[in-house]
Nucleic acid binder design. Structure first.
Length: 586
RNA sequence: GCGUUUGUAGCUCAACCGGAUAGAGCACCGGCCUUCUAAGCCGGGGGUUGCAGGUUCGAUUCCUGCCAAGCGCACCA
């Protein structure tokens, strides 16, 4: 409908241009919006105001001309000029009723579209280091990222979800060494566990699994392990020097092959846990992309060569630098350290070169907001590699702060006291967790109140929406119990009986769903859909309280049943799109 | 200090990307269950959109300055 009006206005303006009332080369951005106030009709446009200045006339006079030139349309019953020069459009209510039959006909497909058809988009999200279980901060990225991907898919994009596994680097060596030391404990060695190692219970679990599977294969005497190792921090030493020495010792005592085996067991144990965790949270990926692979297959070398050829690399202080400051970054960045090792950033350059080569029309990176300073250098890298910077979109997710009522829940990754995503899911459930995470704009800080999310008696927005759905299901159960049967055809014939304000309001609300979906997808803002579902639920609850559905008059009864059946479909479509369940009873 | 993001009702947040009288929930006050689930509904109070300028028909939205907060400023990942 919206597009139709836009087309009509465009025609009118073309007509005016043709007859010389308007400059021929006038830019015409047609904007038609739904009105907030029913008094302003169903749709409104501000074209006249937008054009008035460049057309050197006043808005109301121009609006007048446009109205005269507008082609007529059967469903358009009234147009008027209001306020400073808005053109308000009033639609025939028949147009509103059509949405009911459309929804019942299309079912699950209602709201979906093909505006993204033929376009490939990659969404990379979470990508947490595989050094421990996901915590609640990752949960928000997971809920948000998967929703962005699902929304894009719903409007026709070909979407690829990817997780970048940082399986290289020092943190992974610390993990491998942590696993090995816990394993030695299991073997009976008296280990003093390093302060800078991973202390979580999951490391113990992996270690005991290793012990069960391989016996004492990796055991070494603790004396040989600790011999001449610099002191740890609690003993007055430096925790980093201490752990690095232990890593080197582990590599030495185990040999390359056995060290690699322990390393892989640690990595795979945690990756398996992350995959399961995410899957249970409704998040699934097409690709798990390994950083190690970039190192092994020469991608990093290749990427650096490309930068070299393009003239963006130089040597200084024994290191190799990327001149990112020439492309908008605040300073240049090291890509190869003076010890010959490439940096994490070098991996990321190679990774993005990979992404560019895979033929996506759009590449979406979803990062924690603390990485925002990283954006300019990655954009610089993409540009230096000859890629199209506009294809890369980085979306930031702010941290969620957990509260239990008034009390702030402490979080710290290293100490092992952090709240994991899994703990959150068991405490509040996946539905509430996803809903709460997505309720707010992702780039805003949010307070996540566990008490509110778990409450089933208090006002809880998740239950509010689900309850609306369950109530409709209940109506249809009651209908049968009372000996009635829904007659869809009769209902469709009498939709015109739906004249109450609650009913016309719901009709408008329902017809907005496809627009909401489209906007939420293109703007990467799932919270708009959540917001919409809350409003729709609200309108339904109000309707439910104001009018009876199961009544004697068959024509009105069936018309109303068709309407709430449409509401039921849209609620379910929206919830399912966000991977939130729609229980039939509550 | 530099960069960046954010300041909206007592609290948590929206506001269709510049539109008409800035809206919800929680909390507070007052009503509604012999009738389809009261996890619900109806009504009420509550705002100088951090402050000061600017741009224009029109600003919570764009620009500048100031104030305040978060984050970032590694040859870590």
């Amino acid at each position: 409908m919206k597009q139709k009006i836009e087309a009509l206005i465009l025609q009118a303006i073309e007509t005016l241009k043709a007859e010389g009332s308007l400059e021929r080369d006038l830019a015409t951005p047609i904007v038609v919006e739904r009105t907030r106030d029913p008094l302003h009709g169903d749709f409104a446009s501000n074209v006249a105001m937008a054009l008035a200045k460049s057309a050197k006339t006043n808005p109301r006079a121009l609006a007048e001309k446009i109205l005269v030139a507008m082609p007529s349309d059967a469903l358009l019953i009234k147009m008027e000029i209001a306020g400073p020069g808005f053109i308000n459009f009033f639609m025939d209510t028949r147009a509103q009723y059509q949405v009911v039959s459309k929804i019942l006909l299309e079912g699950e497909a209602f709201g979906r579209s093909q505006i993204g058809a033929g376009k490939k988009v990659q969404v990379e999200f979470v990508s947490a280091n595989p050094t421990g279980p996901l915590h609640v901060g990752h949960g928000r990225g997971a809920a948000y990222g998967s929703a962005v991907a699902d929304l894009l898919a719903a409007v026709g994009f070909q979407v690829e979800r990817e997780y970048y596994v940082n399986d290289a680097g020092r943190q992974m060596d610390i993990l491998a060494t942590s696993v090995w030391l816990r394993y030695l404990e299991t073997c009976g060695e008296a280990v003093i566990f390093p302060s800078n190692a991973y202390r979580g219970d999951y490391v113990r679990d992996i270690a005991s699994a290793l012990h069960e599977g391989s016996g004492t294969l990796y055991q070494r005497a603790i004396a040989s392990v600790m011999e001449a190792i610099p002191a740890d921090e609690p003993q007055g030493g430096d925790k980093d020097i201490h752990i690095d020495a232990l890593i080197e010792r582990a590599k030495l005592l185990l040999g390359a092959e056995q060290y690699e085996a322990v390393f892989q067991i640690g990595l795979n144990g945690i990756l398996a846990d992350i995959k399961q965790d995410l899957s249970e949270f409704g998040v699934d990926y097409q690709h798990w992309f390994s950083e190690r692979q970039l190192m092994d297959d020469g991608s990093i070398q290749q990427a650096l060569q490309r930068l070299e050829v393009a003239g963006f690399l130089y040597e200084q202080d024994g290191a190799t630098w990327f001149a990112s400051s020439r492309l908008g970054d605040e300073k240049d960045r090291v890509v190869v350290r003076d010890n010959g090792q490439s940096t994490y950033f070098a991996s990321d350059i190679a990774y993005h070169m990979q992404k560019l080569s895979r033929g996506f029309d759009q590449i979406i990176d979803i990062w924690g907001a603390d990485h925002h300073g990283y954006i300019p250098r990655v954009r610089a890298a993409v540009e230096a590699l000859g890629g199209d910077v506009d294809k890369l979109k980085v979306l930031l997710v702010q941290f969620a702060v957990l509260y239990r009522g008034e009390e702030r829940v402490p979080m710290s990754t290293r100490s092992g006291e952090f709240v994991t995503l899994r703990e959150l899911r068991t405490e509040v459930g996946s539905d509430a967790a996803r809903f709460f995470y997505m309720m707010r704009r992702s780039d805003q800080h949010m307070d996540f109140d566990l008490q509110l999310a778990t409450s089933k008696t208090n006002e809880n927005p998740v239950f509010y929406v689900q309850y609306a759905y369950a109530r409709i299901c209940s109506v249809f159960r009651q209908l049968v119990e009372k000996g009635f049967q829904q007659d869809v055809t009769q209902g469709m014939e009498h939709l015109a009986l739906l004249t109450e304000s609650h009913e016309t309001g719901l009709l408008t609300m329902l017809s907005r769903y496809p627009e909401i979906l489209e906007r939420a997808a293109l703007q990467h803002e799932p919270h708009q859909l959540i917001q919409y579902l809350r409003e729709l639920a609200n309108d339904f609850h109000a309707y439910y309280n104001a009018h009876q559905f199961i009544i004697e008059a068959a024509d009105l009864r069936n018309a109303r049943l068709n309407l709430i059946c449409a509401v039921q479909h849209v609620l379910r479509n929206g919830l399912h799109l966000l991977k939130i369940t729609s229980p039939e009873t509550m």
